[in-house]
Structures are given as structure tokens and as C-alpha cells.
Design a protein around this nucleic acid. Structure first.
Lengths: 209, 209
DNA sequence: CCGAATTAATTAAACGTTTGTTTAGTTTTA
DNA sequence: TAAAACTAAACAAACGTTTAATTAATTCGG
């Protein structure tokens, strides 16, 4: 599915507002006003509010998948370096697309299976498979410890990043950065999260339990 | 503020429904039906839906605070053991009160400061102070590494637990536990998270960067 | 200990808004 | 001139809250 400019404008404002006020907390009139269009255009282009939400996810699906295919068989990097690259990819995705990821982390908590939760689930499974492959290779070559639960690892990576980015106010206040412009804060937190998560997993992965 | 039985019944069903469908996704009529009362009782007892939400948090505030006062000056345990106890306390809280914590993790993402976000913020600050005190003591005695950002540590602990518990379906499916009764799953995940987080932080805290 | 008086608890119905969506018509583009 | 884009208005349903009336519980002087 490809969207025209008008549709993309609606998708982007919807993404923004959904991330701030939540799906149920945002009315189609809110979106229409913010996007400077008529209310009826949402139904006209997307059919319903629900389908607009699906369009947001459809549009950002690539943002969820970590790309590791080429990297996996590149012998230039150590297994640990490859894990580090994956960490950086997660950090970059979350920092670059904060609205969407806040949306996704919220949606992920929904218990009943919808088209969107299924989509998230599917991508998570694929990412899990990629990382597992890498971890197993590292274990086989003797670099990584045994008994590593990759699902827990993923939970730590995404959970930590989400916790910092999505409740940013707490980090900013405790680090005297309340009024730091978004761009500078992003630069700071990118480096900070990257360094922290790498050192956290380096010792964990390479030491014996 | 103390609540009578009827009020507690409303609070508990509200907590449950808010955690499943979200605050905006839950109507006061949903709550009234589930609790077997008349819609007007919510306004009668709490004034408004918003104030009912605040009552839920007021009722569970103790659940958020980690208690470390006595423990901190107990020389029977090592600094690392004390950190381990804090980890277990977080794990237990999240597992025992899943509904409330899902609610809280969602609410924490709200950007505009409400009475509830302020409350969460306040408790997080207190917990941060307790843990920081402990970490600094461990560093002074030479047991812990330097340059530990306690805010990031907290983010990893709560973020990891939340990620596993609140999107439980993913963990269950990848571990062949789809139909495991809640009680047995809770027992399993309690042990699993505790062991994992301890080993994750043990190496991180005690090794040099 | 009782029955009248008072307060608290509970109800069904109605209130005015807001909700997502549709309709029917108009303007713009192809 | 036919199709696409866009609009204001209307739609019924759902929303949070209030009202007015009724039932249950509590208080209290005799």
C-alpha cells in the first residue's frame, strides 16, 4: 500500500496525536483540526479511525524490523560487535521515531489480539530469530556464555530504551536537562543508552554464569 | 483517605478494566456493570471518573515504594545482596499487582503533568534516592564499579519486568507456555526475572568499565 | 426499646456533549 | 464531462455527569 501526500500528512499528525493522547484519547476531529483538513477526509481516505491507526503502523513497519541479514555473515566483526550494532539499531530507531515507538509500546500492552498486535508480534518474532541466530553462533565459538534467554535480552534492550525515552521527563530532571532542546537531548541520550547497554551486555554475555 | 468496602469494590474493578482497555477506553458504565452497581455510584462516591483513577493510585501507592530503610544499615548483607533484594522487590511488586503496574507504566508515558504523573514521579524520585545511596556505599567500599547511572539501572529493572509481564503473550508463546495457568506462570516468571536481572547486574556492577 | 426524624445509599431517567461515521452537495482536477 | 477531492451538515450512539425520587440505614428523644 502506498499513500499520497495528503494521506501521509494525516498519518503523521495521527501518529503524533495518538502518541501524546493515546488512540482512545484522540478524536478524529482533533486529527482533522491539527492536519488542517475536514473530518470526513479520514473516512474518505482510510475508512475509519481504526484503519487509520493500521495505516500508521503499515507506514512504519520497516521501522520495527532490525536489519541484520548482511551483517550476520560478515566475518569482519566479532560476535560481540554484531550485538553492539543491534543495540545501536534499536537505540537509533527509538530515538529517531519516538512518537511511533511510544505508540507501539502502548499498543503492545493490549491483551486482545488485533491486526496491529499481530503485526507487532510477527516483527518481534523475526527480530528474535535474527538475534538468537547470532547469540547461538557466539556460543558455538565459545565467546558467549550459555543459558542466555534471548527474549529477556530483547525485553531489556527495548524496555530500557522505552522507559528512558517515553518518560523522558524523569531522566531530564534527574540530570539537569529540563530545558535542553530535543535535538541536543536526542544526541545525548543516544550516546548514553548505547554506551550503557553495551557495557551492560558485554560483561553479561562474555562471562560465565 | 480510607475507602469502605463498596468503594474498594469499585476501585478494584476500575483498576482491572483500566489495565485492560485503558482509561479512555473504559466507560464508567463498563465499570458499573462489571462491579454490579448503578452508574451514578461512581460520581456519588468519587465525584468523577478522573477522581476514581486517582483513588486507584491512592489505594496502591504503597505498592510503588520500595522499602529499604531497615535494610540499608544492616551489615549482615553485602552491598550486592542488598541490590539483589531490591531487584526481588521490584519483581514481586510487578508480578503480584500486574493490573496496577500495567496501568502505571501506561500512565507514566503521559507527557502533560497530572496529579497521577506527579505522584509517580515523586515515588520514583524516592526510590532513586534509596538505590543511589546503596550504590554509592558499594562504590566507596570498592565493591562496585564507578560511573553507574542509577536512573538507567532503574529503567532496566522496571523496563525489563514491564516488557515481559505486560506483553506476556510473547514470552509465553516463545517458551511454550501459552496455556499455563496464571498462578504457575507467575511462579515461573518470578524466578526467571529474578535470576536474570541478578546475573545481569552482578557482572555489570562488580566489574570495571 | 421503639418509632419518628435524619442521613446515607441507591436507582432510573434525563442532561448536554462528544464521539465516529455518513450523506448529499459543491469544487477541483483530469 | 466524468472522476476525484473536499465540504458543511446531519446522524445515531456513547459518553460523563446530574437530577429527582425511592429505599435502606442510622440516630435519638421519650
Amino acid at each position: 500500500m502506498e499513500f499520497n501526500e495528503k494521506q501521509l500528512a494525516i498519518i503523521h499528525t495521527a501518529e503524533k496525536l495518538f502518541s501524546v493522547t493515546g488512540f482512545d484519547g484522540t478524536s478524529v476531529r482533533d486529527i482533522a483540526n491539527e492536519a488542517g483538513i475536514n473530518v470526513a477526509m479520514v473516512s474518505y481516505y482510510f475508512g475509519s479511525k481504526e484503519k487509520l491507526m493500521e495505516a500508521v503502523f503499515e507506514h512504519r513497519t520497516n521501522q520495527m524490523r532490525i536489519k541484520v541479514e548482511n551483517m550476520l555473515q560478515n566475518d569482519q566483526y566479532s560476535h560481540l560487535d554484531k550485538i553492539f550494532m543491534i543495540i545501536d539499531e534499536y537505540v537509533d530507531k527509538f530515538v529517531d521515531r519516538q512518537d511511533f515507538h511510544k505508540l507501539m509500546m502502548r499498543e503492545q500492552f493490549n491483551e486482545k489480539g488485533t491486526l496491529i498486535t499481530d503485526l507487532i508480534h510477527e516483527v518481534k518474532l523475526k527480530n528474535l530469530a535474527s538475534i538468537t541466530k547470532l547469540i547461538r553462533a557466539g556460543q558455538k565459538s565459545g565467546n558467549f556464555a550459555k543459558n542466555i534467554d534471548v527474549v529477556l535480552m530483547m525485553a531489556t534492550i527495548t524496555g530500557t530504551i522505552s522507559q528512558i525515552i517515553n518518560s523522558q521527563r524523569f531522566y531530564r530532571e534527574t540530570h539537569s536537562m529540563t530545558d535542553l532542546p530535543a535535538e541536543e537531548f536526542n544526541k545525548h541520550i543516544r550516546k548514553k543508552l548505547s554506551t550503557y547497554l553495551k557495557s551492560l551486555f558485554k560483561t553479561f554475555l562474555t562471562n560465565e554464569a
